[in-house]
Every structure is written in structure tokens, then in C-alpha cells.
């Protein structure tokens, strides 16, 4: 995988995360689940920032940044707060793995940013209830 391909893959993952967190935010209640709502909102903002950064990084290499899809499959039901957290865990596991690949396929400043993004997504995983792993993003 070339660095640009790895960046595009991470960008695609962030497009999906932004879309899905927007949906999860709409499914949760700020008044009834304030902690969950705040976590979802925080995750949404972080993913938006990462998406924007990746768009810049891809464009800086002369490539056309991959566009968001019209819709994304939601990886699970979202009727209850527990289900919403479950979907958030799935999103973050996917993003963490993608950032692990980005670390492996970049160097220099791009890898530095990927490492920071990997750390952030690993922390979001546990904030939604994923058990800590010895090697997040590696498998």
C-alpha cells in the first residue's frame, strides 16, 4: 500500500465515522443520556477534524481526496444507549485498525500524525467500553 493509498483509506474510514456519529448523535438524548451524548459529540468533532486533516494531506500529494459515500451501513442496531455504544465501539475499532495501517505505510510527519491519531482512536475505544488491549490497532 502506498502512503497515498493508506491516507485515502484512512480518509474513507473518517468519512464513514463522521456520517455514523452524526446518526448516533441523532439517536441519543442530550437530556436523558448526557454523558453518552457528550462522548458521541466529542467523537464526532474529533473525526471531523481528522477527516479535514486527511483531506489536506491527500490533496497536498496531488491526489483527489476520496469522497464520502451517500450512505453507510450502520454496524448494528441503535435503539438503546447500550446498542449505540456498541456501534461506537465498532466504529472506533475499525478506525484504530486503519490508523495502525497508516502508521505502517507512512513515514516522517505523516507517520507522526498517524501515531497521534492511533492513540486518540484507541482512547475513544475504551471511552465507549472496549476492554484495553495490549496491541490496539494491530489486529
Amino acid at each position: 500500500m502506498t502512503p497515498v493509498q493508506a491516507l485515502q483509506k484512512a480518509l474513507a474510514a473518517e468519512h464513514a465515522a463522521v456520517h455514523l456519529y452524526g446518526l448516533l448523535g441523532g439517536q441519543s438524548s442530550k437530556s436523558q443520556q448526557p454523558v453518552l451524548f457528550a462522548r458521541l459529540d466529542d467523537a464526532y468533532e474529533q473525526h471531523r477534524a481528522s477527516r479535514d486533516r486527511l483531506t489536506v494531506l491527500v490533496a497536498a500529494r496531488g491526489a483527489e481526496p476520496v469522497a464520502a459515500e451517500v450512505d453507510y451501513d450502520v454496524p448494528g442496531p441503535t435503539s438503546t444507549p447500550a446498542q449505540i455504544e456498541g456501534v461506537a465501539r465498532t466504529i472506533e475499532r475499525r478506525v484504530t485498525r486503519t490508523y495502525g495501517e497508516l502508521v505502517a505505510n507512512t513515514a516522517g510527519d505523516d507517520r507522526r500524525w498517524a501515531i497521534t491519531a492511533l492513540d486518540a482512536s484507541a482512547l475513544r475505544e475504551v471511552s465507549f467500553g472496549v476492554a484495553p488491549s495490549s496491541f490496539p490497532g494491530l489486529r
Partner: peptide, 10 residues
């Protein structure tokens, strides 16, 4: 690099 970064994230 991925292994080491993963350890740090762990």
C-alpha cells in the same frame, strides 16, 4: 513502527 505505536496506544 505499527507494532511500537500499538504498544504505546496500549
Amino acid at each position: 513502527a505499527q507494532l511500537l505505536a500499538s504498544m504505546g496506544a496500549g
